[in-house]
Write a protein that binds this DNA or RNA. Structure first.
Lengths: 177, 177
DNA sequence: ACAGCCATGTAACTTGTTACATGATTTT
DNA sequence: AAAATCATGTAACAAGTTACATGGCTGT
């Protein structure tokens, strides 16, 4: 539901057209989560179908503007003030993979951990470099992109530390040499 | 693709039937990511359609066993030895929400952060309690569940620390009182 | 002229998800 | 006898994703 809500949130500000929504989403979240332009239009169609937005004629330049309906405005408000639920967190593919590999015969768990750590550390370095390059301008959109990078960095750091823990656990299992 | 691959991975061990796959997935990953039984059967249908698995008659008790085809075995091997890509990480709903809230008028960013922190800390406490309760038995499945809980704990801790950082950043913006 | 961006869309598809139906077996 | 669990499935749908088509406009 992230994309639906993101588009609704951007429309809360003022009416916007499809291409613009994609541009502004990227301005605020950076390049980590690219948004295919086709998807913007399919999502807008579905939001209109569901009564969340409506077409607003054009803006003089021929662009097709959408704006929130009352139901859409409600939806945004609810989304913004409702915390992201942590009772059913999204499935973590890495955790699933390691948990299964550990319990199945013939899987090289140590190798998986090491390969993953290499990838995660490389990603961490790229995020850190991107963060240094994106010096915080006074513009809010720059701060927003910085926060997103911080989030990616924190998550990836946590992943690396977890991999270290898994490795230590694995050593205990395979024999405390 | 997590569920597809999880079922394939479990079948790598030996032929299994649908209900059993769900049970064993839960044994290894705990209760954090419940797997609807209906979904097991739909996924098995699709895996069979895609030539990854085949029906294997029954096991004497009337259960419908599935086993990996060569293509399915390939798929599992590739999945296990290929690190989870960090170039296109899954969208983080919380990060998106805060980044958008920060750049849109009328959003109570501070309130969102505080409400989210309360929820995340509560989740953290529940994970920690679950971890304490699930004393590590010598069985591998218990260690696997423990690792999954560790992963959730690490990710949630990172989230809380990130929220702290966001709050500090926000204070700088709204005026260094 | 040509490349590239701006702008809108559609068709087809995948994975995930749930609600429901059905019946056998087991436990209380 | 009733409730719970075991076991298999189906129908319908949501959300995300991409490949493709189409045309205008802009800069070189």
């Amino acid at each position: 539901m992230s994309i639906r809500h993101s588009l609704l949130a951007l429309l809360q500000d003022r009416p916007r057209y499809g291409y613009q929504l994609r541009t502004e989403f990227h301005e605020r979240t950076g390049s980590a989560w690219p948004l295919n332009i086709g998807q913007v239009y399919t999502t807008l169609d579905r939001l209109e179908r569901d009564g969340m937005i409506s077409r607003d004629g054009d803006d003089g330049a021929g662009h097709i503007l959408y704006s929130l309906t009352p139901a859409g405005a409600d939806e945004v408000r609810t989304w913004l003030r409702t915390p992201v639920g942590r009772s059913n967190p999204p499935r973590n593919e890495l955790a699933i993979k390691l948990a299964l590999a550990l319990t199945l015969p013939g899987a090289d768990v140590g190798g998986i951990i090491q390969a993953q750590r290499a990838v995660s550390i490389r990603a961490l370095q790229e995020y850190t470099r991107a963060r240094r390059d994106a010096a915080a301008q006074p513009r809010l959109t720059d701060t927003a992109r910085l926060l997103v990078l911080d989030s990616l960095i924190f998550q990836t750091e946590a992943e690396v530390r977890w991999l270290d823990l898994c490795e230590a656990r694995l050593m205990q299992l395979t024999g405390p040499a």
